[in-house]
Design a protein around this nucleic acid. Structure first.
Length: 280
DNA sequence: AACACCCCCTGTCGGC
DNA sequence: TGCCGACAGGGGGTGT
């Protein structure tokens, strides 16, 4: 989503912001629209699952998509000042109008998403970001880091990898897919990533590149469209075609020569998909 | 401290 | 056709 928004938003000035209700998941921060109007977007970043819009005021807009949130770019001012008709106006909660003639609309049916503003110089200390763990796509992320993060952890790998305070950015789909690629059972205690001396185990050496490859490929594919996810340009995500296990319960394992069947189980209330034959 | 569970909200789908 | 429960990409708060 960050990549998709960049062409429309980077360097653009926000002319105005319309909020169509007082809250999404949380109330908008004080003077939300006023603090955004007139500001130029200097940089689009990301921390875990949070989008970061750095503004020329020094403040940063933080946005989280939750389960069902999305941003949509449109040409707002073609011809006379007319806005394209939304297919889902009921869930269009925030509209940004930009000085380049485009508009960016935040749509979120379930309203698990949220937006907030971080004061100048206070981004890393912001409550929503301060507790986040490592970036799995950072150059430092490797098997040794995995081992250090999870040494001694008894939680199942599945739950531990979803914990944003250790690794930030992995969701239910990509955890399932990464564990499949690493041939690791989601139920194994996360401590298996460390050996007796706290170094990287064979499991960690398999999992680190698996996490990285799943994320890189999913981003490249524009995400995964289960039902209604769209990229910012309106196109569908395509990574669902690459799922090996997610939402494939009852179907044959796709690993060559594996005769297993994909099983669906549950960890901490979330569905888990895995092959009980080749994931150990 | 670490982990599990319920809940927030809306929409969709399958079963009856 | 309609109703009802289960479930969905996340994660905050609380209880054990």
């Amino acid at each position: 989503m960050r990549r998709g928004l960049e062409p429309a938003m980077l360097g653009a000035r926000i002319i105005s912001v319309e909020t169509r209700r007082g809250d999404i998941r949380f109330p908008f921060p004080p003077r939300f629209r006023e603090r955004l109007a007139g500001r130029r977007v200097l940089e689009l970043g990301r921390r875990g699952k949070h989008l970061l819009f750095r503004l020329d005021s020094g403040e940063t807009l933080i946005a989280h998509l939750g389960m069902s949130g999305s941003f949509r770019i449109e040409d707002a001012f073609v011809g006379e000042f007319r806005h394209p008709r939304s297919k889902d106006p009921k869930h269009d909660h925030v509209v940004f109008r930009l000085d380049n003639g485009k508009s960016v609309t935040f749509n979120d049916p379930r309203r698990f998403g949220f937006m907030d503003l971080a004061d100048k110089g206070m981004l890393d200390a912001h409550p929503r970001l301060a507790g986040l763990g490592e970036e799995p796509l950072s150059p430092e992320f490797d098997a040794a880091r995995l081992a250090k993060l999870f040494a001694g952890a008894r939680a199942p790998l599945k739950s531990a990898l979803l914990d944003q305070t250790r690794i930030a950015g992995l969701g239910n789909i990509y955890v399932c897919e990464a564990l499949f690629r690493a041939r690791l059972s989601p139920s194994r205690p996360a401590g298996v990533l460390a050996n007796a001396r706290g170094g990287a185990s064979a499991s960690a050496r398999a999992l680190a590149p698996a996490i990285r490859s799943v994320l890189v490929e999913a981003i490249e594919a524009g995400g995964s469209t289960l039902r209604d996810h769209r990229q910012a340009n309106g196109e569908l995500g395509l990574f669902q075609h690459a799922f090996a296990v997610y939402d494939r319960d009852g179907l044959p394992c796709l690993r060559p020569r594996c005769r297993g069947t994909i099983i669906r189980s549950r960890h901490a209330g979330r569905s888990t998909f895995y092959c009980s034959v080749c994931q150990r």
